[in-house]
Design a binder for these strands. Structure first.
Lengths: 159, 159
DNA sequence: CTCCTTGCAAAGGATTTGCACTAAC
DNA sequence: GTTAGTGCAAATCCTTTGCAAGGAG
């Protein structure tokens, strides 16, 4: 969706004031809900779903509607402040928009960051005449440590 | 989901009789519907959605319910005879299960094969202690030739 | 004749949307 | 005051499922 490159803002590293600026510049308003959702996402490494963000917020006693969580997350993605991850099950959101790769557990659906360095040269790939590449993604699939143990049982948490 | 490696069956190259065998061996029956769906998928390079397969079949005058198309496609995926592709929009199905990569147009959602050779070494990546990697995927995103022209207009066919 | 499949319609999960209301700017 | 954002419920999209009838082995 959004174009990414080295030096692109990542939610984690940006002071709130700057995020505020970015939103305002796009005539987006700095509301209580957006602040809460941003805060709920900052620094997270677990790539939560909209539903998870929603639940975490109300677990903290604050209230934001699920619709607003979705609207905000998608809006932030459009601004390039978060990254949307697609796969089996509901979409997940990553506050780290810097180029990096993911591992997805085929059993529980959880997504983890992978430390393999980003391969800039892959963005230079010629897919064919007339194709324009914005970026690439690499996703590994398999079992995460905790699902590896319970091979037999059916576990679908986090979907 | 399914483990893939060089030499794994690809729907395109397998004689129907062999597919029949594979199904029977798993106590799956060789029905009119399954034959039709398999035929509709064979040799296709456009990674259709279940809905598209469904429509193509009834355009040919044959009738299979959408539920059966879904059930069959998912069953074939479980047998490793087709590959499921996730992304924005509905799932797509690829009759070619040999290791290869994809390009997805962010405007129309169409998926294309990418000629970049499969990097076996990436399956050896150590994600972390306790992780088991089954395979990896690389997906490029950007604009396909036909969407590149109509940048301004909103085009969402094929979703 | 047994068990797997199908079709249909209903159910389900994930996500979006219409609308009246509220709150930024 | 304007205009964008919110909550809520309804709507939508994609997909799965329950069940009775049909068909393969």
């Amino acid at each position: 969706m959004q174009r990414r490159s080295l030096g692109q803002p990542r939610l984690d590293g940006i002071p709130q004031a700057v995020i505020m600026q970015m939103l305002i510049m796009n005539s987006l308003r700095w509301t209580r809900q957006r602040k809460l959702i941003l805060d709920a996402l900052r620094g997270r490494k677990d790539h939560p779903t909209a539903e998870q963000v929603y639940h975490d917020l109300r677990a903290k006693g604050t209230t934001v509607s699920l619709a607003t969580v979705y609207r905000t997350l998608r809006a932030l993605a459009r601004q390039g402040l978060v990254r949307e991850l697609h796969g089996e099950g509901p979409d997940r959101f990553d506050p780290d928009t810097s180029p990096h790769y993911h591992f997805r557990c085929t059993r529980c659906g959880h997504v983890f960051d992978v430390a393999v360095p980003y391969k800039d040269e892959l963005d230079q790939v010629v897919v064919g005449p007339g194709f324009v590449v914005s970026f690439h993604e690499i996703t590994w699939e398999g079992l995460c440590p905790s699902c590896r143990g319970r091979e037999g049982s059916q576990n679908d948490e986090g979907r």
